[in-house]
């Protein structure tokens, strides 16, 4: 299952985008974090990185 973003917590910092080994994340217009469900392997790198706990297991 792909990861889910909690938009109430996400700061749009984009760090997770660089961490994702599968290029599955995009910070659209520098604002909205989008998970590409086809590419996400549920590895959890983004969740480990996130400074505010905004990316969760589905």
């Amino acid at each position: 299952m792909p990861r889910k973003v909690d938009y109430d917590l996400c700061m749009s910092c984009g760090g997770c985008v660089g961490v994702c080994p599968f290029l599955a994340l995009t910070l659209e217009h520098g604002i909205k974090l989008i998970v590409d469900e086809e590419r996400c392997t549920d590895c959890g790198s983004c969740t480990s990185f996130c400074p505010v706990g905004a990316i969760k297991e589905a």
Partner: peptide, 26 residues
């Protein structure tokens, strides 16, 4: 393009920020 660093990866340079080599800041 900073930490997000997608452009280099599109061109075949693996600039992925490995978890052991990136700090989470607040």
């Amino acid at each position: 393009d900073g930490v997000e660093s997608k452009v280099a990866r599109w061109a075949g340079i693996d600039s992925t920020q490995r978890l052991v080599d990136i700090d989470s800041a607040y």
